[in-house]
Write a protein that binds this DNA or RNA. Sequence first.
DNA 1: GTTAGCACTCTCGCCTTTCGAGTGCTAACC
DNA 2: GGTTAGCACTCGAAAGGCGAGAGTGCTAAC
Lengths: 342, 342
Amino acid sequence: MITERKKQVLEAVIKDYVKTAEPVGSRTIARHYMPEYSSATIRNEMSDLEEMGYLTQPHVSSGRVPNVHAYRLYVDHLINDGLINPIKDTGTEKALIARLQQMEDVVCTIAQSLSDMCRYTVAVMLPRQKDLRINSLQLMPISSARALLVVLTDAGIIRDAVVQVSSELTADDLYSISRAMSERFSGRTLSEVQGLLQGIAIHAKLEPRVMQGVGELAKQMEKQASADQLRVFGSQNILFHTEFSDVEKARSFLSAVEEKQNLLKLMSRGVKQGICAYIGHENGIVELEDCSVVVASYEMGNGHRGSVAVIGPMRMPYQELLTTLSSTASILSGMLKNSLGA
Amino acid sequence: MITERKKQVLEAVIKDYVKTAEPVGSRTIARHYMPEYSSATIRNEMSDLEEMGYLTQPHVSSGRVPNVHAYRLYVDHLINDGLINPIKDTGTEKALIARLQQMEDVVCTIAQSLSDMCRYTVAVMLPRQKDLRINSLQLMPISSARALLVVLTDAGIIRDAVVQVSSELTADDLYSISRAMSERFSGRTLSEVQGLLQGIAIHAKLEPRVMQGVGELAKQMEKQASADQLRVFGSQNILFHTEFSDVEKARSFLSAVEEKQNLLKLMSRGVKQGICAYIGHENGIVELEDCSVVVASYEMGNGHRGSVAVIGPMRMPYQELLTTLSSTASILSGMLKNSLGA
DNA sequence: GTTAGCACTCTCGCCTTTCGAGTGCTAACC
DNA sequence: GGTTAGCACTCGAAAGGCGAGAGTGCTAAC
């Protein structure tokens, strides 16, 4: 069994190691964290903790370093014992909202400032695009034979693409086509569009090339659904942390983060829970086996969900991080609910 | 005076140093580049070149390393003596054009692939937004009291923003407002919009809040003009080069590149010439004094110009780089002229 | 003008030594 | 029985010493 005092020692080791990135000795703990005991006592406890698999010694006569299991225990303790109290929104919302009107802008801006703030890499997953419902469509003329097709979806996401149209169509024609299409597609999800197009073919009055354009855009959006769904910010921040002072490691981290598929998979898993942490190899990404990923999910007004993740070395200040991240997620949810959508 | 043979030696030193990143000795030159002479001869030449300020010795008994002046001479020689022949467009254009319809997409995609290809950091400067001319405007309803304002400019750049509108306006109202506005603003530059809005105030029939929205958007675009005008790709590539194996240096590079103002200034200077190189301290950015920036300019159909830059250590293969970059710029110009704008 | 030869310099890698932080163990203490 | 002081021991990091090798400058000969 792990006694209360062992837990204290373990927590002290974690805190000190997070701060210094150096193996922690028994004397340091006794002096700075638990002056009521002598170093010898701590030494015995640490020896036990090592045997129990929570601490490791880089070499026989050095201090100890916390383990995946140690972090796991610590983080579980933080999450389960209610030690994470998201700070109430402090009014940042109002300052930002004036200038950010599209959902992606909001999310990306928040992510960027989060990464600046905590000096880690931040990834955000946007809601899955093919589940989005179309609100309306509009065509606007660009040149004689081309038009811009703008699709407005419920989650406040706007997408556009240039489509070829017959050169005989006037702006007014395009407008009435837009109205007709809006009516027909409104409320449908993007994945339904393809099917609808088939059924619609008979209504050939609706410019076929435009139809094709809509189909293209829908396809493209679906395709993007995986690629574009993840945005990464502050990946350079990794260079601030000593575990990456070897350029080779930094490079491997960066390439792992750039290859978004893996991260995406991980973050989709986390989207249902409120907040969770994948420590070390738990994240399942080989290149990131020495890193941790902390994921929190946010919600938009109409049931769509996304998630925000902080990625950094295993040695992270989990307490602050969990607090900050869960605050961020709840602020984000708030902003998206209030300002966009229905 | 610098003799022809001295130039040959200098060029050999540069080429070898670019390849190996190690100081180059006289024997290497004699063996690999100029077997018609002995190492002693080369030694004498190198000694002269050092005295003339083209080479430096890291320490007394090591090979020599080329200087800012050496690179300068070399690059001038490449540029002036017509050694840069942009490769004719090889058909990449067609493959890309189908999927890239907006000017920014085109430029950014090219920049990204350029940075992947040459493993350096690439920056692109987009045309100055406030000089862009408005082509047309369109409002589309989002919710009861909000509309999306889309502005189409000549250079194929599309911008949008959400604006507040009176809740009484129907979609048809918005459409006719759009037409009226398009008529009025078409052909004007963004910086003229502010002034026009004043004069227009009397025509109060045009929803005042929309007008305000237009003004806001114009303002915002001007504001973005500097921030958003520069895009950076592949900044992580810097980690591939030995001169940045010290993390501290890599970090300083990355922060210098992220702070876009300086780069923007530098690239604006280069926009008038076809292609030019700023070697070492010539680029005027303190953090990049050990780096070179090679800038080429591209052109869009209607007189707007932007530029592309490759940023890397001073030790770069200038010949290939200049060729690649100038090809890229000309391909880019071609694509933009053919596919967009007038 | 070019080259061969030689003495000289300086870095780099390798080894050894020293220093110190930290441990484990034992014996004494409360 | 838990806690503590003391001591011998281990091992890595930093410092110093040494030899090898690459490269130079200079001189004298071709």
